Computed example of a mutant assay.
Amino acid sequence: MTVTAPQTQTIAQSSSPSSSPSSIRSLARRPVWLVGVLAILAGAVVTEVFALIARGVGVPMDAASPGAKEAAEIPVGGFAGGVVFWSVAGIVLAVVLARWAKRPARTFVVVTVALTALSMAGPAAAPHTATSTQIVLAVSHVVAAAVIIPVLARRLAQHRR
């Protein structure tokens, strides 16, 4: 019995802090808005790195809004800025759902996944934009959502009214 006890302690000590139960409990103690801000910052960084990789492999970063006569360059930092700008509504939604929804995590996931799917209409309809750029734009929406939605949903699942 005493032989296995040190092995158990070694395994427990070597586990990563990000997956430990204490870090999950710490997430549950943070305000929903703060978890949202942290998730958005992470999503913005990951999305910008994705865009920089796309630039690096030669995808043109020129896009036009509907009605525009020509495409304009998407600046470095533009993807991160877009994630931050549009995700603020997600934080508001999460805070509102935490306060009034019966099942805030489930409702948040359903609404945000639907909005992410809807957001892909923008890149698909972008005139004067290369197809490769449209694909990168659409995938960047999914990348940001894949980072932000699970973090906020996990926090909302821990929420107690």
Rank of each mutant, 00 (worst) to 15 (best):
residue 10 T to Y: 10
residue 38 L to C: 04
residue 54 A to H: 11
residue 32 V to T: 15
residue 73 E to C: 04
residue 3 V to Q: 15
residue 59 V to C: 12
residue 13 Q to V: 01
residue 53 I to W: 07
residue 83 V to F: 05
residue 88 V to E: 04
residue 126 A to I: 04
residue 122 G to H: 00
residue 67 G to E: 08
residue 38 L to G: 03
residue 53 I to G: 09
residue 62 D to Q: 15
residue 77 G to N: 12
residue 39 A to F: 01
residue 39 A to Q: 11
residue 105 A to I: 11
residue 114 A to C: 05
residue 36 G to N: 04
residue 153 A to L: 12
residue 10 T to M: 11
residue 151 V to S: 08
residue 80 A to R: 09
residue 92 V to K: 02
residue 61 M to I: 03
residue 127 P to V: 10
residue 97 L to V: 10
residue 158 Q to T: 09
residue 92 V to F: 06
residue 11 I to F: 15
residue 21 P to S: 08
residue 140 S to F: 08
residue 114 A to I: 14
residue 54 A to R: 07
residue 25 R to F: 08
residue 91 I to W: 01
residue 134 Q to Y: 00
residue 136 V to A: 13
residue 99 R to Q: 14
residue 98 A to S: 15
residue 47 T to N: 06
residue 160 R to M: 15
residue 43 G to H: 00
residue 103 R to M: 12
residue 146 A to R: 08
residue 20 S to Q: 09
residue 28 A to E: 07
residue 1 M to V: 12
residue 86 W to Y: 15
residue 83 V to R: 01
residue 76 V to E: 08
residue 76 V to A: 14
residue 161 R to G: 02
residue 154 R to K: 01
residue 9 Q to I: 04
residue 25 R to Y: 09
residue 61 M to Q: 05
residue 127 P to C: 05
residue 69 K to L: 15
residue 16 S to W: 02
residue 112 T to Q: 14
residue 132 S to W: 01
residue 72 A to D: 09
residue 17 P to R: 11
residue 89 A to R: 09
residue 68 A to Q: 05
residue 100 W to H: 11
residue 118 L to T: 00
residue 112 T to R: 14
residue 139 V to K: 05
residue 41 L to N: 11
residue 87 S to M: 02
residue 102 K to W: 15
residue 131 T to M: 08
residue 158 Q to E: 13
residue 127 P to R: 01
residue 115 L to R: 10
residue 47 T to G: 04
residue 52 L to W: 10
residue 45 V to D: 00
residue 82 G to F: 06
residue 46 V to R: 01
residue 20 S to F: 08
residue 80 A to P: 13
residue 143 V to N: 03
residue 63 A to P: 10
residue 50 F to K: 02
residue 136 V to E: 05
residue 101 A to L: 14
residue 41 L to Q: 10
residue 143 V to P: 03
residue 29 R to Y: 06
residue 153 A to M: 10
residue 26 S to C: 06
residue 42 A to E: 08
